[in-house]
């Protein structure tokens, strides 16, 4: 894995980011509605003078290409601009919300991979067994059910029938001044339902994928050899088979990261999780261009970084790829 590989991947990533910024800039402006009118509406109405001063203040009266140039120049210098709505730096708004989103996405990713792989391996052991049938049915259902529907069902279940888990927010507000350990537990408690909701669709995919992958690997000659040599079932499954079967899972995990973030947008909205997804959703309704652009920029960056990490780990896991650029 050479430096040239890394540089090449990074430059692809930068180009991609530039494309994302330009495309988003124009797409957002295609939506009907004037941000100044939204701000004025929120103010309770306004005169033409106030409307004009809002447009002047946020540069909305400048030509679109000038606005694009100002925005790209700002981004290049690390300035994502100020939110039209909150009149605060977009970077600050995102900074307050990126940790909850990362916590949700990473937890869901780990949960789905770990549970999915375990289910897949167990199913692959006996392809015609009960577990295999369960994984197939569960995968089909899990993959077919929309993430927001799962969230709503869980809210209904846990709001009234079994009030064990909190159904909204990330923290009990009355514990905001409690100690670190209490707050960490509180956050973990709030994380259970949104993380499970987000994980379930991918869990189903990983279970199905690892089952298929393991079935293929388990029929290989070297597995038969390992068994003939008297290796235990655990050693065969997890040491010999899983490492090879994990390659496609790793690839899919990287590619799915973007989907996971877009899923997080819905889950955050359903569970009132204070992350970037909810900020994006609210900002779209408010025509808060800089905030929408900032969230999309960060989300794209996370996807680019995730894909880069996938590329690197793929090469780490498969020595045959290390010589290639």
């Amino acid at each position: 894995m050479g430096m040239s590989f890394l540089l090449r991947r990074l430059s692809y990533g930068l180009l991609l980011m530039l494309g994302v910024v330009v495309l988003n800039f124009f797409l957002i402006r295609l939506a009907p509605g004037d941000p100044a009118v939204v701000i004025a509406g929120d103010m309770g109405g306004a005169t033409e003078e106030i409307l004009e001063s809002i447009r002047e203040e946020y540069g909305l009266n400048k030509p679109v290409l000038t606005q694009l140039w100002i925005y790209i120049s700002g981004v290049a210098q690390g300035d994502l601009g100020d939110s039209f709505f909150f009149n605060q730096p977009v970077a600050k708004l995102i900074g307050e919300r990126i940790s909850p989103t990362i916590l949700l996405v990473i937890t869901a990713q780990l949960l789905s991979i770990m549970l999915g792989v375990v289910l897949g391996v167990l199913a692959a052991r006996k392809p015609n067994g009960v577990m295999s049938a369960f994984v197939s049915v569960f995968s089909t259902i899990g993959y077919a059910v929309p993430v927001f529907w799962t969230g709503i069902m869980l809210i209904i279940l846990f709001a009234s029938t079994f009030p064990v888990f909190p159904v909204e927010g990330m923290q009990s507000i009355k514990l905001r001044n409690a100690g670190f350990f209490t707050q960490a537990l509180d956050i973990a408690h709030h994380l259970v339902l949104p993380a499970f909701t987000l994980a379930i669709i991918y869990l189903a995919q990983y279970a199905r994928l690892s089952r298929a992958s393991m079935l293929e690997v388990l029929s290989s000659d070297y597995i038969r050899t390992a068994r003939a040599k008297g290796a235990s079932e655990g050693t065969v499954l997890f040491k010999h088979a899983l490492r090879n079967a994990a390659l496609p899972i790793l690839t899919v995990a990287g590619l799915q990261f973007g989907n996971l973030i877009s899923g997080a947008l819905l889950v955050e909205t359903v569970f009132n999780w204070p992350g970037m997804g909810r900020l994006a959703f609210d900002s779209i309704l408010r025509r808060d261009y800089p905030t929408i652009m900032g969230v999309l920029f960060f989300a794209s960056m996370m996807v680019v970084v995730a894909n880069l990490i996938t590329d690197i780990s793929y090469r780490w896991a498969d020595p045959r790829l290390r010589g290639r650029t």
Partner: peptide, 30 residues
């Protein structure tokens, strides 16, 4: 995690005369 956290809900949240939590759907600009 569930048991530990659910036990938190049993903790008296605040003393009388302390905190008022107002819930709203509307976000202030400032």
């Amino acid at each position: 995690v569930a048991i530990s956290a659910s036990s938190l809900t049993a903790v008296p949240a605040f003393a009388e005369g302390g905190t008022l939590v107002i819930a709203t759907t509307q976000a202030p600009r400032h």
